[in-house]
Design a protein around this nucleic acid. Structure first.
Lengths: 215, 215
DNA sequence: CTTTTAACACCTAGGTGTAAAATT
DNA sequence: AATTTTACACCTAGGTGTTAAAAG
């Protein structure tokens, strides 16, 4: 029943909003498939290890704490979801995002136009209209309770300020640098409402008790 | 240009709200008079030391972070304003409550019925209707940048968790106990919407670089 | 002289991976 | 054997009164 922050966090830039209109921006995390995975150490790969039915659960929505906010303000800043918390506790009552361990997931970002018809700050699920949703291939991740991949561990230690105590000022740095070259998202992800499509340019996203999928 | 939390913080209990209706609850701090004060140490008293015109400033509103919320939820819990921050910086751009040092002030609590006509989460000033305001005589305080009254200092050290490092486990305890007997607010203040009046029963309220008024 | 500012040691509060223990 | 939980040392982040220096 652990609950930890998602790290790296999802960070997005938005353009094409109406400056004076009010928007909510939210994130949720949806299953990529219905498979359960296990990590095969000697081949450094995630392998299918069973099936899971996710169809009866609706994902929880994390509303960005700045919501609601004008399109102008949203577009002026990088929108960071660094306080999102994940848990594997299905009975969680703190509103955190509930995921099953050893499964693949992908975050989605939702931009919701304010509408006086629904209760704006009490949103528990997505409204039927006035929503645009985006997701990014490179933010896919696999959930774990213990790290399987030492490269991910090193990346987390080096990039997460709260893990500074585990940093080795010595030669580990080279290993991390190598991983970062292949780490797809370094700068904020980009959402363009004029194009109405997901234009990814890198950024950061993943989760806490989590390793990336590929090996 | 200091900005510190208000301590003790204002804590209220509410009754008489409509359970299913949505409300904002907010606090602001208004001048008690137009006088500037100085503390006369030998007589342990605040004396008038000048005049100030507060008429051209509208006080800033601090909206309780749980807002908006149903009447049922508001009534079920103690409503604590322990994150309110005060500053003497008139140019403050962080939204903190701006006060002048060496003046007397009194907090006000506002209960605001949700209304689709105004932009609910962007409230900068009080709406013209649908608001009920309460204040409590015993929460009056005088602002300072350095404590004038050693009893207040001792009370803060003993009651504020963040000041634990200054606590003296020895004989100071007796002094504080004596002050607490005369300290008027120990339990949450009470707002009754059926009576539409301020029914005070003690509680806690004051401010950060602040001493109480009386000697 | 009175009042304010800034640096400081000392706290609370909470986010890390780790390693051992517990669970399945 | 694989996975999860728990206690832990070590961090970040930020709230205290104190003190000396600065400002008025």
């Amino acid at each position: 029943s652990a609950r930890r922050r998602m790290f790296p966090s999802v960070r997005v830039k938005v353009k094409g909003l109406e400056p004076l209109k009010q928007y909510y921006i939210a994130i949720d995390v949806v299953p990529v498939d219905s498979k359960r995975y296990r990590y095969v150490y000697h081949s450094s790969q995630w392998m299918v290890a069973g099936n899971t039915d996710h169809s009866c659960i609706t994902p929880r929505l994390y509303i960005h704490p700045d919501s609601p906010c004008s399109g102008e303000t949203w577009m002026r800043q990088i929108i960071s979801f660094d306080r999102v918390k994940l848990t594997n506790n299905e009975m969680d009552d703190k509103g955190h995002i509930i995921l099953q361990s050893m499964h693949k997931y992908k975050p989605r970002v939702h931009v919701i136009a304010q509408d006086s018809r629904f209760d704006l700050a009490q949103i528990q699920s997505l409204p039927a209209e006035g929503v645009q949703s985006f997701s990014f291939q490179e933010t896919e991740f696999t959930t774990v309770t213990a790290y399987q991949n030492q490269q991910i561990t090193k990346l987390k230690i080096d990039r997460n300020p709260f893990a500074k105590g585990f940093r080795d000022p010595g030669r580990n740095r080279g290993v991390l640098d190598g991983l970062l070259e292949t780490y797809p998202w370094r700068s904020p992800l980009a959402l363009d409402f004029k194009a109405f499509g997901a234009d990814s340019q890198g950024g950061s996203s993943s989760s806490s008790p989590v390793t990336s999928s590929g090996g």
